[in-house]
Amino acid sequence: MKGYNFGFLDEVSKREIRRKILKAIAIPGYQVPFSSKELPIPRGWGTGGIQITLSIIGPDDILKVIDQGCDESVNAVNIKKFIKAVTGVELTTDTTEATIIQTRHRIPEESMTEKQILVLQVPYPEALRVFEPSEVETRRMHAEADYARMWLYLYEDIVKFQEISIGARYPVLVNNRYIMDPSPIPRWDIPKLNMAKTLYLFGAGREKRIYAVPPYTDVKPLEFEDFKFRVEDFRGKCCMICGSSDTFLDELIDGSSGERIYICSDTSYCKKRRLVRSEL
């Protein structure tokens, strides 16, 4: 695109964001404040993720952008088009082909490698915000690893509902030090964070925070010894398109019959499996 620097952001801004990313990698799970530049997209629409992607992307990268697992949703397509326009990089929908994947609310089903980076868009970076409105106080809690109230929150949840009611944004302990909001990914994706081969970068544009889970980092969901963390239960259900019974499924109501149907949330993986099946 003429009149703009490669990657839309100027080099000084990109350098700042890269430095913040390096700091975030050095302190896994710690929220690093950053300046959060203006983009031709309103804040709250993935600007944190976009800024990270634009700062780390090079001309040879291959980009995939997904929204809730879907490559073709309006949001994903718009972001993809924008990044393509300002960098000229190649786009893909294949998880294994991409070097950088920007995502909202999902981690792809296919396992990723050391050569890839997953960039997550984050609406609320502070895991402790659910019970503590004061930023001063949550920062103190992180600094002193004073997490009793997070545990108390879980205790109260169990006492009240006999269940931990948090679905997405399930709090995790990173590297045995910081409690982190993994962004609104389903519980299904939480185990993928632990000892992952891939670098995970989290960007919150509106809240001006960057944090990271480096490869091979210990990431544990908070759980009690006798009340364990559980992922969503899809037993007896399968994707009505590809027949998968080992992926995260979206529940839909069939418009004509009124029945509950399930389809894969990760659309590209679903497509891939269908292809494999038809070839067989």
Binding site: W151, L152, Y155, E156, F224
Partner: peptide, 23 residues
């Protein structure tokens, strides 16, 4: 606004107890 039991449990949680039954 947190249950009386939870208030007491908080101290046990700070102490690192993570077994709901024992708490």
């Amino acid at each position: 606004n947190i249950s009386a039991g939870g208030n007491i449990a908080e101290n046990l949680l700070v102490a690192g107890l993570r077994n709901l039954k024992r708490i």
